[in-house]
Design a protein around this nucleic acid. Sequence first.
DNA 1: CATGAATGAGCATTCATTCAT
DNA 2: AATGAATGAATGCTCATTCAT
Lengths: 202, 202, 202, 202
Amino acid sequence: MARPKNQGARREALIEAAGRAITGRGLAGLRIKDIAAEAGVSAGSVLYYYPELDDLVFEVHQDAVERYLAVRLSHTSAVIAGDPVDRLRRAIDSGLPRDSDDPVHRLLYELHGLADRSRQHAALMSSLFAREVALYTTILEVGCAEGVFAPSQGVAEVARDLVVLEDGYGLHIVSRNPAVDRDTARDALAGLARTLTGCPRL
Amino acid sequence: MARPKNQGARREALIEAAGRAITGRGLAGLRIKDIAAEAGVSAGSVLYYYPELDDLVFEVHQDAVERYLAVRLSHTSAVIAGDPVDRLRRAIDSGLPRDSDDPVHRLLYELHGLADRSRQHAALMSSLFAREVALYTTILEVGCAEGVFAPSQGVAEVARDLVVLEDGYGLHIVSRNPAVDRDTARDALAGLARTLTGCPRL
Amino acid sequence: MARPKNQGARREALIEAAGRAITGRGLAGLRIKDIAAEAGVSAGSVLYYYPELDDLVFEVHQDAVERYLAVRLSHTSAVIAGDPVDRLRRAIDSGLPRDSDDPVHRLLYELHGLADRSRQHAALMSSLFAREVALYTTILEVGCAEGVFAPSQGVAEVARDLVVLEDGYGLHIVSRNPAVDRDTARDALAGLARTLTGCPRL
Amino acid sequence: MARPKNQGARREALIEAAGRAITGRGLAGLRIKDIAAEAGVSAGSVLYYYPELDDLVFEVHQDAVERYLAVRLSHTSAVIAGDPVDRLRRAIDSGLPRDSDDPVHRLLYELHGLADRSRQHAALMSSLFAREVALYTTILEVGCAEGVFAPSQGVAEVARDLVVLEDGYGLHIVSRNPAVDRDTARDALAGLARTLTGCPRL
DNA sequence: CATGAATGAGCATTCATTCAT
DNA sequence: AATGAATGAATGCTCATTCAT
């Protein structure tokens, strides 16, 4: 592994390495050694950049949230898909794990488990939630304005329900519940969206 | 703490103690010392009954699932509440954490996190899921037979959506997401139930 | 204080069980549990009869030495074999391990290792040595009296050399030295006996 | 204790320390603590260099065998003593423990006890044996060539008998058998050598 | 900057030992 | 007499952490 020249790049590399280590061994079994090995550096180096390991884990969480959101946003951008129905479908698609081994969702799920004991992590999770709700809200509002969607309740509530359902299905997929797979989840979300928006095209 | 006389009682006590320890310190930080302290015995005694700590944790999971289901079932029993609408309301009530400190939900959430790395735990989680879906399914079917509910889709799907939404909301409550509290969640679930069953009384 | 008969029998059984445990796991890895398991009793029972484990090990050593000597003596008894040459051959035969798994020799070898740190065990080993030397001495002296043997040095020295050589060969056989097996050892001992006694019949 | 700079030196120091610890407390009672104390380092350091303690013990055995052989070889070198009789006397001298506290012999005896349960240690012991036999064989052959020795059997057998007798006497000396001391053993070995080689000068 | 050497705190774990029954 | 339950002392061992180079 090439040596990044500046501090920032090295920290970036460590964040990625730590993410892989967490995905691989789980948060409970996380050792500095693993992060170091994953980054191709010594354990001392990890401590050099992150004297407090919690800080590194937090930045992994931050990074994971930002990356995940960036991907969702780009996948559902109005530029890419002008049609609100299409955008909603894409939103749903981008919010579900590919399968139980999806690294992004596994990582996020693992890190969300820290929320109940850490305010920082709780804030991160809440922020992700809020921005996902905002994503759906935007799409729904545009759809309403265009007359495509006609929800019987507030769009905020519909958006929130969709995100929560997404999280619930994602949870079961990552947790290897055989009764739930990606297709089931996508269909369920689409069905709910159809019902809640009154849009038959969904 | 009183000394149970027989093996079964002592194991029972250890399961409860371990449950408290996990709720208190989290699975990641679980030490035999903590379980022993919580049970009022020595660390050696814990190992005496559970040479493999994983077995104890698994029995904690089993126990938590059974207790949780037992409570839900008794709260929604047809004897207690004959009216399907009332039963559905009670089902929703019994499926959401009281608040972010609800010990039962915290414990279950913590233990469900093991599902992605352990088939046994995954099986437990799936079993809980299936039985919760069955609980809703029963209520819905009775309601349909009585003409109270008129869902536009299959009751199995409606039941599953409700359980998944419950899990999603529960997750956010336990994780201290300030945008979600018990009342919000209950209203959302009730609203969704109303929409999906076409029952205006909900 | 006279010991009840079944006490004696139980202690006897424990001595045998401990002997098997030592042969099986070695002295270094000896645990009370193993002795108990081998005797089919509980660990507490072992401690009940032998509060000091060293005492049990010592009695195992005693027992092993006595049994071994008794076998050698009976194998070389003048009644069984009147001919000194025959007796000498039998003495050699009875002094070498059958193979590297010979349980008697393994046990004795293991226990002799205690001699350098324990006067008691050293005394036991010395006593065994002296009695083996006496065994050879007797045979040699009878042979001399009969004119069968004509050693150029004292019979005590010849006897001692034979016992020491026996021990040395036994050591290598038990230790799995591939260059030494029972036949080699027996031939070597017989050859030396022939040379030292000047008896061509050996 | 000075801190060695390189890995090799530290490992060397640990091998020596472990050797002293084994000589002092015996193999059965060997604790990492003891080795560490003997080496003047922490217990963690011992594990740092030897994650598998067996490896350290094996290297102690290797080292002990090599040192012992090196000393014997140098003591009996043809350069130091040209006369075969003198060399044979020196060989005998170098093969017996000084007394029952001779550290080299105690260590070797202790380690040889591992041979029956470990192929590696058995191989080490066999190798030592073979090289000791070779040492005597060489001396005997040179003596035969010079006409000093005239053995009635093959030199290989004579050499083997001498080594085995050495081992047997060494065993009894280290085990504190009061009937055997160094002088007795040396005289016995010399006497046997005289008989077997037919050399009256021995 | 980065490392490998070295440490020690903290943990599970083993085992002899105690004790009530 | 004999046991199984329960303990705690002792140990190995894993780690984060420190430090000299």
